[in-house]
């Protein structure tokens, strides 16, 4: 554990909680892509199956359980409790174009051809592109609420901090995981355009194009 990793995890947690609170307080999921949230629920589920097979640390277990719980709670709020406010017409990204190639890639390029390892690899690849339906939705409607931009900023910051974490681990532990690093770079790059707008517009809600 290093400072980049810790702040990254907390940033990730902040993003998840910001989104949950936004939906809960406003009683609305307008402007939020349910598809991205389903993809994140799939990401956490397929990655954290090792909860059942191995114990790493109390921190690790707690965070995994919280992430999975929050992901399903978010999906529940969007598709069940507040589904009347869900803007399905604008959430039109074809997720099969992500899930199918990512699944194929996970089978082809992985550390070990075993069930759990392929699911873990699938989750890493899927996470790197899971935000695309959300970004697509914002580009389609041309606007995002301020709170939604804070959510996206925290989510992007999390993966950017993980890049520094991997640089740290490479230098001080001689450790690197090429699958995680390449996917992490791809994921971070997807946020770059958004980061630029977020900083230059001072995080205000804005009309937004990609």
């Amino acid at each position: 554990m290093n400072i980049f990793r810790l702040i990254g995890d907390l940033s990730h947690l902040a993003a998840i909680i910001i989104l949950l609170l936004k939906i809960w307080k406003s009683r609305s999921c307008a402007g939020i892509s349910g598809k991205s949230q389903i993809l994140f629920a799939i990401v956490f589920t397929t990655r954290y199956l090792d909860l059942l097979t191995s114990f790493i640390s109390l921190y690790n277990t707690c965070m995994k359980v919280i992430y999975i719980g929050c992901a399903y709670a978010t999906v529940y709020l969007i598709y069940m409790k507040f589904r009347a406010t869900y803007d399905g017409n604008h959430d039109s990204f074809r997720v099969e174009f992500l899930v199918v190639p990512v699944g194929g890639l996970a089978v082809l390029i992985n550390h070990d051809f075993s069930f759990l390892e392929i699911l873990w690899t699938f989750s890493i690849y899927l996470e790197s592109v899971a935000i695309l339906p959300q970004l697509f939705m914002i580009s389609k409607t041309g606007e995002a609420e301020t709170i939604t931009t804070h959510y996206l900023f925290c989510l992007g910051l999390y993966r950017a901090l993980y890049l520094f974490n991997w640089i740290w681990r490479f230098y001080f532990e001689g450790f690197f995981d090429m699958i995680a690093i390449v996917a992490g770079v791809v994921q971070t790059v997807l946020y770059c355009d958004f980061f630029y707008l977020y900083v230059t517009k001072d995080g205000k809600g804005y009309r937004f194009s990609i």
Binding site: I56, N60, N165, F175, D177
Partner: peptide, 10 residues
């Protein structure tokens, strides 16, 4: 290349 090495990460 470390196998399954980043499983301690989230």
């Amino acid at each position: 290349l470390a196998f399954s090495g980043s499983k301690d990460e989230l």
